[in-house]
């Protein structure tokens, strides 16, 4: 059902883990639909993403897209990272089954959420970046039930 690349990124996920003092961190998705992705970014003074890490609760596709998304944003500028869309992530994975396309949206949203957090922490505005709507805090999650 999954491409070889998806299976590779699921079995050997790149950049999995947490980060101490990240420049930006974003959590998207919710437990209700079964996918939660948290992305940590380390961004240097020139606005280059030096390091990206993730943690994901979700299916094989969710883990693989998280892994690929971190790979794609590493070494990129903020503006370049914004161009890492769900489509780009999917293409890099040689595609996803139709029922799994929504998992790739999570990766794009996680990048945006982490960048939004970075912008807020630094009091800057990133052109073209909207406030992520699906960012969930523990507080909001509790309210859901």
């Amino acid at each position: 059902m999954y491409s070889e690349k998806v299976m590779d990124h699921f079995q050997n996920p790149r950049n999995v883990g947490e980060m101490e003092n990240p420049s930006g961190v974003g959590t998207v998705g919710n437990a209700k639909c079964g996918d939660i992705m948290r992305m940590f970014l380390d961004i240097d003074e020139n606005g280059i993403i030096q390091e990206a890490k993730f943690k994901t609760f979700g299916c094989g596709a969710a883990v693989a897209t998280s892994s690929m998304a971190t790979e794609l944003v590493k070494g990129k500028t903020i503006q370049e990272a914004l161009e890492v869309t769900n489509k780009a992530v999917m293409e890099a994975l040689d595609g996803l089954p139709p029922v799994k396309v929504h998992c790739s949206l999570l990766a794009e949203e996680a990048i945006h959420a982490a960048l939004w957090d970075y912008a807020e922490k630094n009091g800057i505005t990133i052109e073209g970046l909207q406030k992520p709507v699906s960012d969930i805090s523990e507080h909001e999650e509790e309210e859901e039930y």
Partner: peptide, 9 residues
């Protein structure tokens, strides 16, 4: 679980 943000929380 090592990979899970829920477990981390």
């Amino acid at each position: 679980r090592d990979m899970s943000p829920l477990y981390e929380d």
